[in-house]
């Protein structure tokens, strides 16, 4: 049955929009089992926030001219029963939405969403009991009503002779105004504007869309994207670690690997499908990238 768009039903959406406006992109609205328009809106907001968060994290390290990247943590000390003995919080949005009375001396799992509780039990507590000391897992904390905060976390198990304690450290990458170091004077510091970020994202999309044909020379790419050759050469490599041509080639090889592993197509056909001019050219690029020939890769896949 379709729900109506009432204030009560939209509480999570409003809270999410407030948090997005404040730059808090790690939140997600709690999902329900409905399949209606409202659930679609909630799913869309979650996916949008996730995409923005991913993009921001990718470029965070490049925008340090006015700020420094900080890792904000949320740490819990748990006793053997996994109740919270002590905690420290640097993440304002979590601090603002949770009271310490609801945390201290209460089971740690009370802070997690239902889905994360199951993961905690299955993937964390059970492996930890088998003497594993560190476990890395994303944890979904319940935050404001209807919102969840998804944080990368490390769970450490410290055994004592008569008991075990746990330390949970969850973290969030953020940017803080630089008032300690004068980065502005450092001219070697990388700077990438939002326009540049958009530009390189578009070039990457273009490359992915044109894998089956030879990539245009840099001067043509520059003209296509209204920029200069130098910017493409240096900027693209800074972000992706390789030149546009290497990226183009690597993506082709990655797709070829999937076809080799999952189809009976001949290596020559795969080379042709992926836009290589000849099998020797394909083989050479494949070998340079994976350190084995396509034939050896195929043999290895067939054996495994």
């Amino acid at each position: 049955m379709e729900r109506e768009f009432t204030k009560a039903n939209l509480q999570g959406v409003y809270r999410m929009l407030f948090e997005l406006a404040k730059g808090n992109l790690a939140f997600k609205i709690e999902r329900s089992s409905h399949h209606d328009e409202l659930e679609g809106l909630i799913a869309l907001l979650n996916m949008t926030a996730e995409k923005l968060h991913k993009n921001r994290n990718q470029f965070l390290w490049f925008n340090r001219q006015n700020g420094i990247v900080v890792i904000k943590t949320l740490s819990f000390l748990l006793n053997q029963e996994c109740e919270v003995v002590h905690y420290c919080c640097e993440i304002e949005s979590f601090e603002n939405s949770t009271r310490s009375d609801d945390i201290l001396d209460k089971p740690f799992v009370n802070l997690l969403t239902t889905k994360s509780r199951a993961a905690w039990k299955k993937k964390i507590l059970e492996p930890l009991k088998q003497e594993q000391t560190f476990t890395i897992l994303p944890l979904n904390y319940k935050s404001y009503d209807h919102l969840n905060l998804n944080l990368h976390s490390v769970i450490t198990r410290i055994p004592y002779p008569d008991a075990v304690i746990y330390i949970v450290t969850s973290c969030l990458l953020d940017i803080k105004k630089d008032d300690v170091f004068n980065f502005r004077e450092n001219t070697t510091m990388n700077k990438l504007s939002h326009w540049d970020q958009q530009l390189f994202h578009e070039i990457e999309e273009y490359i992915i869309d044109h894998l089956q044909e030879p990539l245009k020379p840099v001067y043509e790419l520059a003209s296509l994207f209204n920029t200069n050759e130098h910017k493409i050469k240096t900027g693209f490599k800074e972000i992706f670690g390789v030149t546009p041509f290497q990226y183009h080639r690597e993506q082709r090889i990655e797709l070829s690997k999937i076809l080799i592993a999952n189809t009976d197509l001949s290596l020559k056909d795969i080379a042709r499908k992926m836009g290589f001019t000849s099998y020797p050219q394909f083989s050479q690029h494949f070998k340079n990238y994976t350190e084995m020939s396509p034939r050896d890769f195929k043999k290895r896949i067939q054996k495994s």
Binding site: H35, G40, A43, M47, E254, I258, T263
Partner: peptide
């Protein structure tokens, strides 16, 4: 990216409002 391998075209059809938006 990878999901489009060996596909000529794709048509999505769903009556669910949630999945139309997704």
């Amino acid at each position: 990216r990878e999901g489009t391998l060996l596909i000529k075209a794709v048509a999505f059809y769903t009556p669910s409002p949630l999945n139309i938006l997704l």
